[in-house]
């Protein structure tokens, strides 16, 4: 039997149009909610179109109508069988103060691995510089770090003019974008089953450890903390959160013997990855501002005690924020 196409189209087209109109409404208006009677009609039109597609596939091989009906059924299928909650209205405060810290706490193990990788890098960096001072040339990423720490401190403290004058905002935006790119890259490398993420964290740790070792052994500990703490108290944890996100992705890819399909594992963590990386971006905006406008000024302009105190307060606030913010109260 072959379908009488003209008769078939004439009889069924109204239902296809009805389904297409409803789909356009649902797709173009995110807040659009169907009433019960509309929902019933939508479901009926979907079932009818599905039946038409089955009929067409059995009794006719007309490809254009088949493709048209397939696209309608595919779109309606996505709407009807979607079980994940539709996104709510954008609530940035709720998201930052509740969702972000909760997500961090939920994946604490990934953060601890991230922290361990960086600490190992720090130890390695310090150790490498300790046994081979010539390694400084290779390890240090910036020229101003390759020189003698005491000479740099004397130069910075004795500077009469502001070397960032007229370029502070630019420097700040450069730091924000550069660090955010590094963070995104650290997250994205999670797709290498976490190996790339761990290497990035370790490498950053190596630089940090080498710098710390260099300045501490040169007797410039106060300068080091005064210089790094104000922005580092936020920037370093932000990189660690990006590493945490990368390791969450890696964990989902590996599965660790969980009886859940790879697709479901990835689906489960996708919102958490986005939460963490957006949180990281916000923290790096703050760190960028502090680094350009505050960290680069040393004694006698700003006393080290004030800078270290400021950095410590940031670290305490961040720790409390991550530990307590958005915590459900037990009854």
């Amino acid at each position: 039997m072959i379908l009488d196409l003209k008769k078939f189209i004439a009889e069924e087209k109204a239902y296809w149009t009805e389904l297409e109109t409803a789909l356009e409404d649902l797709e173009t208006k995110p807040g659009h909610r169907l009433k019960l009677n509309e929902l019933k009609r939508f479901h009926y039109a979907y079932q009818r179109t599905s039946a038409d597609l089955a009929k067409l596939r059995t009794y006719s091989s007309e490809p254009n109508i088949r493709r048209y009906l397939e696209s309608l059924v595919a779109r309606a299928y996505g709407e009807i069988h979607e079980t994940r909650q539709k996104p709510h209205r954008l609530t940035p405060f709720h998201w930052f103060f509740t969702v972000f810290p909760r997500t961090f706490r939920q994946h604490l193990r990934a953060f601890l691995i991230s922290l361990a990788a960086m600490l190992l890098g720090c130890i390695f960096g310090g150790f490498a510089l300790g046994i081979d001072p010539a390694a400084k040339e290779v390890i240090m990423p910036f020229t101003h770090l390759k020189g003698d720490p005491s000479e740099r401190v004397a130069k910075e403290e004795g500077a009469d003019d502001d070397r960032l004058k007229g370029a502070k905002t630019y420097f700040s935006s450069y730091l924000m974008t550069h660090n955010t790119k590094v963070s995104i890259f650290t997250l994205a490398l999670g797709v290498t089953y976490g190996i790339g993420t761990l290497i990035m964290l370790f490498y950053n740790g190596v630089i940090l450890g080498a710098v710390a070792f260099d300045y501490i052994t040169a007797g410039e500990t106060l300068f080091l903390f005064g210089w790094l703490l104000p922005h580092g108290a936020i920037e370093i944890p932000a990189i660690l959160f990006a590493g945490q996100a990368g390791l969450i992705l890696a964990g989902a890819l590996i599965g660790w013997g969980r009886p859940v399909s790879l697709r479901m594992r990835l689906r489960k963590i996708s919102a958490d990855l986005v939460t963490l990386i957006f949180g990281v971006a916000i923290l790096l905006i703050w760190a960028g501002i502090i680094e350009a406008f505050f960290s680069q000024y040393h004694e006698p302009v700003i006393p080290y005690a004030a800078k270290i105190g400021f950095g410590m307060i940031e670290l305490i606030v961040l720790t409390l924020f991550l530990a307590k913010s958005g915590k459900e109260r037990s009854i």
């Binding site: 709407e79 996104p87 995104i184 994205a188 797709v191 290498t192 996708s270 919102a271 986005v274």
Partner: peptide, 16 residues
């Protein structure tokens, strides 16, 4: 239906 998180992740992983 395509989720916002899916859009973000596939775009961020462009880095790799």
């Amino acid at each position: 239906r395509l989720r916002f998180s899916q859009v973000v992740i596939r775009n961020l992983l462009r880095f790799v």
